[in-house]
Design a binder for these strands. Structure first.
Lengths: 159, 159
DNA sequence: CACAATTCAATTGCGCACAACTCAATCGGC
DNA sequence: GCCGATTGAGTTGTGCGCAATTGAATTGTG
């Protein structure tokens, strides 16, 4: 045996095995992310939220008022994404944006009364998502663990 | 013991464990996907490809000429995404698009000579990505396995 | 105090993702 | 052969994601 994998290839294609594995990992990650997106889209439709907007609301429900900067750190998003998103949430009457008096550079985001009321309807969403995912809790925990580690590694490598 | 988890909560917050897990899973999935995207962005910069364009080229390198429809099934993308993407690849001189003679509705996509030459440079990419991911092969396989299963479940639930 | 460097939000430009729609080609039943 | 239904690409509109830039507020240093 000149080859050592289960997928024998010509010498000219050395590395093609890795290329395949790579494709499967990254592609399946992408596909999974979009598949979750699809389920969230329908689950959040009644609330009038997109998934990133839902994430923002989750932070606001948990933390109260937070500056845009902090929101970005929590969600791994920059102002280029958050500014228009927050503008839309503001237009929908769900959040307020106000310059911080102590530091006029930063903008404080907070949920309005309507935004806080939305939490009620949002409580049903996660159970629906978990049911759709259809994996046992242990697997989901393992998945989360792996994802967290790989993200940390990738961010470190990219820095 | 009234509770059964490691994270006891008040009765009003029943299910909050699940809720939190859901948030962590979906968020970390999203974050991981974007973290991979960032590493790919830099790795593919020299080739002048984006990550979705790279996925398309992978299919073409592997399969030769394929109709747009088939491309969409493989990559889980629809014509609304593929049409402009393929247009850009065509403008870059990497692929050709031609109506299928047997069925004038479908369009056959194939790599040009320049597109095929790009494969040479692309062979170095996966190793770089895997290194950045920094997980042992077994973990990556486990990750891929979980992602594939969860995507299949989500797609089935969404249908 | 003055002034250069830094920080934070917003904006611009480009590409992806998806829903909704259009339109031509094809297929099916009759 | 004819006509309605279906199929495959493409287009439009909206929103996310990110790089690069702008501009105002703040901080640090001489």
């Amino acid at each position: 045996m000149t080859w050592h994998g289960e997928n024998p290839r010509s010498p000219r294609d050395e590395g093609a095995d890795l290329l395949l594995l790579d494709q499967q990992i990254c592609f399946s990650l992408n596909a999974a992310s979009r598949a979750f997106g699809g389920v969230y889209r329908t689950a959040l439709k009644d609330l009038g939220l997109t998934y990133p907007q839902y994430l923002v609301m989750l932070v606001l429900w948990e933390d109260g008022a937070v500056p845009v900067k902090q929101l970005g750190e929590r969600l791994r998003l920059d102002s280029g994404t958050l500014s228009p998103l927050l503008k839309r949430l503001e237009a929908a009457g769900l959040v307020t944006r106000a310059r911080c008096p102590e530091d006029e550079r930063s903008v404080i985001v907070a949920a309005t009364a309507a935004g806080r009321e939305l939490r009620e309807g949002a409580l049903a969403v996660p159970r629906r998502i978990l049911a759709a995912a259809g994996l046992p809790l242990d697997d989901l925990r393992a998945l989360r663990e792996l994802l967290t580690r790989v993200t940390a590694n990738l961010d470190a490598a990219g820095a």
